[in-house]
Computed example of a mutant assay.
Amino acid sequence: MEPTVTLSDLVAQSSRLPRVPAEAADAYRSVMQALVVEVSETLAADSDYREFLCGNPPPLAENHRNHALFMDEVLTSGSYDLLAVTLPWLYHAYHARGVHYDYFPAELRLWQRAIAKTLPPEAAAPINAVYDWLLEHHGQFVALAEQQAARPPVRPPVFADVLDVLTEALLGGDDARVLALCRGVKDGGASLPELLLHLIYPVLQRVGDLWEDGRISVADEHQATAIVNRVLGALYYEETFPEQVRGRALVASSLNQLHEIGAWMVATCLELDGWDVDYLGANVPPDALLQKARRVQPDLIALSIAMAFSLRETRALIAALRAQLPGVKILIGGQAFLRLPALVDDMGADAYQPDCAAAMQWARAVRRGESR
């Protein structure tokens, strides 16, 4: 009997990949847009590739741009464990929508051909060796994707009964019912931060799992997120905020991140704890955030990073913030770090916190001088 594939084994195997020379990684970055165009046009024109998609539309150029940004992070940082933890999730999410597993090696070979065509041989060879590793471990990615599909549902221990009803109302598009349920939880004695941590975050996780499993559509997922935004807006304006100000904070989601719930939760918890918060929302360009930070001179900056392909730009942003606002404290969080916490180590931030309540407690301690 073949042994069970484990993610830790795959991560260990990825660590044996040789580091791509810096010159090759720089060359890849310089031609990323050309590679995106080459792969996108080839895929769109060839019916053989479309058969693997099983009726799904060909991936948009944006998907391929995200692939290029992700590989740029991997090649530059040498964090090959990112490949090991991300590919099974990607296989699972695509396959749940009917995409055949054979699509992935076919697309990876397209990238290899585009790289060999666009880059000089001395740069293309070490980069395509990484793609070779992906192709060699295709079967393991499939096995891990299947294991993810069979995982049991995670039920948070707090508010579990309300969570089921809230999920049904949310997926049914019943925003009035969602608002009534949340108000009922608050009337029962829960604070807004507790509601965010133990009900809103878990229900959005559940919606995300349903989307990954192909059980709801992109439209369903977007509608659920929109309802949560509207409900949280209503609850926000029912709160009483402290008059005493602890300090000034700036909170934002990273560039290319379109969901902002996580950052909104952190901003709101900080406000309820007495911070004067400038909240910038989703998909904030680094230059705009840096300009805003210089103008308002915050004591604390909190950044939410959802996807690994935003790590490079966020790392550069943090370095720029350090150079121009040397006294500011920088906090990071987001989905990008949940699968691979070690990514936090080289971001240059003062701390990583996994949720809004932990972020609030850390910020309070920093303001009191208890943490550095």
Results as ranks from 00 to 15, higher is better:
Ser254Met: 06
Arg294Pro: 08
Gly214Cys: 13
Leu272Tyr: 11
Gln257Asn: 12
Val245Phe: 11
Asp273Asn: 15
Asn256Leu: 08
Trp264Ile: 10
Leu272Cys: 14
Thr268Phe: 12
Gly281Pro: 09
Leu232Glu: 04
Ile227Tyr: 02
Ala249Pro: 08
Ala249Lys: 03
Trp211Asp: 10
Asp287Arg: 13
Leu270Gly: 06
Glu238Arg: 05
Val231Phe: 02
Gln257Met: 11
Ala293Leu: 01
Tyr279Pro: 10
Ile216Pro: 15
Gly262Val: 02
Glu260Phe: 06
Ile227Gln: 03
Asn256Val: 00
Arg248Gln: 08
Trp211Gln: 12
Lys292Thr: 13
Asp273Pro: 04
Val296His: 03
Gly233Glu: 08
Met265His: 12
Gln257Lys: 10
Ala263His: 01
Gly233Asp: 08
Leu258Thr: 09
Leu280Pro: 09
Ile261Met: 15
Ala267Ser: 09
Ala267Trp: 01
Val218Glu: 09
Glu271Cys: 11
Asn256Ala: 11
Asn283Gln: 10
Ser253Leu: 01
Ala263Ser: 06
Asp299Gln: 13
Arg294Lys: 15
Ala293Lys: 02
Val251Thr: 02
Arg215Met: 13
Val284Ile: 15
Ile261Cys: 08
Gly274Leu: 11
Val266Asn: 03
Gln244Met: 07
Val284Trp: 05
Glu221Gln: 15
Val296Glu: 06
Gly214Thr: 14
Met265Lys: 11
Ala282Pro: 12
Arg215Asp: 09
Ala249Thr: 00
Val296Tyr: 05
Ala288Ile: 00
Leu258Asn: 06
Val218Phe: 15
Ala252Leu: 04
Val245Cys: 14
Gln291Tyr: 06
Gly274Ser: 10
